[in-house]
């Protein structure tokens, strides 16, 4: 193990480490802690210049104010309406493409695979004008579905990379044995490979959820207004309205961050497994 386990060091370093851990953590999360504190500070405190002292009371009503006075609820709902179909669509499509690229040997296999991989690295801006045009011409500009469709297509790149590598690592003998038995290719996919893909599906689902929930660029390009915009774009416009109302900005930010954070803590193992794919050989 590297570095040397702290247990094997002098008592003094053990104590030092135990103290350093929480201190480092607080320093690391300082900006976030500040915002969390501000979100429960009554506006009166901010007006009186009490920015860092003890809040005069815990103003959880800031959160209620945010809900009552803005379309935050609407924005959050829109985020779900974009994110959930994208997770289902991208993970579903990539189960199929990943299976095809991992199981079958054909000439253009590797080229296709690398097209998916390369497409995933492309900057959004090179797609912006044509995708916006395409969405407008399909009559889906400014709809959550129009935004979700683009996300499904784009995420298919990353998801295919992930699924293909995952299936490739499964024992191929299972597929061969099923073929000998005369099982059709679709049945092999459905009943032999799919059941083994559960961890990959879980990992990809949390990752795609987080990526799409946090997307800002495409929300700005393909939607406009509170009826369709997801929370990231919503926060941006609320930030414009709430100049200097930092207790509200903070409460809104915390609310926007909550769903992916919950997702992360609930599915931590899968999340990290997905993110660090390929970090070990």
């Amino acid at each position: 193990m590297f570095p040397r386990p702290i247990q094997s060091m002098s008592p003094a370093s053990k104590v030092a480490y135990k103290i350093a851990l929480p201190v480092m953590l607080v320093l690391w999360l300082l900006p976030l802690l500040g915002v969390a504190m501000t979100s429960i500070r009554p506006s009166g405190d901010l007006a009186a210049g009490n920015y860092f002292g003890i809040p005069s009371r815990l103003a959880f009503d800031n959160y209620l104010t945010v809900f009552r006075n803005t379309d935050l609820e609407r924005y959050l709902l829109n985020s779900f309406k974009v994110t959930i179909p994208t997770v289902i669509g991208a993970v579903g499509l990539s189960c199929l493409t990943g299976f095809a690229l991992a199981i079958y040997k054909f000439k253009s296999n590797l080229i296709l695979f690398f097209i998916f991989v390369a497409g995933n690295f492309v900057p959004s801006q090179i797609l912006m004008v044509p995708v916006r045009d395409l969405t407008v011409s399909m009559g889906m500009y400014n709809t959550t579905m129009g935004l979700a469709l683009f996300h499904i297509a784009f995420q298919t790149g990353f998801c295919t990379l992930f699924m293909r590598n995952f299936i490739k690592a499964l024992p191929f003998e299972l597929v061969e044995a099923a073929r000998v038995e005369g099982v059709s290719e679709w049945q092999i996919f459905r009943h032999v490979v799919m059941p083994l893909m559960r961890p990959a599906i879980a990992a990809l689902s949390v990752l795609v959820f987080t990526f799409i929930w946090n997307d800002f660029f495409w929300a700005m390009v393909l939607t406009t207004g509170a009826a369709t915009q997801p929370i990231t774009a919503g926060l941006n416009s609320l930030n414009g309205q709430w100049i200097a109302a930092w207790h509200l900005v903070s409460a809104g930010s915390i609310l926007a961050a909550l769903p992916p954070v919950l997702m992360f803590f609930l599915m931590q193992r899968h999340f990290i497994a997905g993110l660090t794919l390929g970090a070990v050989k």
């Binding site: 499509l93 990539s94 199929l96 493409t97 296709l112 097209i115 998916f116 497409g119 492309v122 090179i126 797609l127 004008v129 044509p130 995708v131 395409l134 469709l149 683009f150 499904i152 297509a153 784009f154 298919t156 790149g157 295919t160």
Partner: peptide, 12 residues
């Protein structure tokens, strides 16, 4: 998957 990727990523 290819059709979606083609229309939304490659062609654009």
């Amino acid at each position: 998957g290819m059709a979606m990727f083609l229309f939304y990523v490659i062609i654009p």
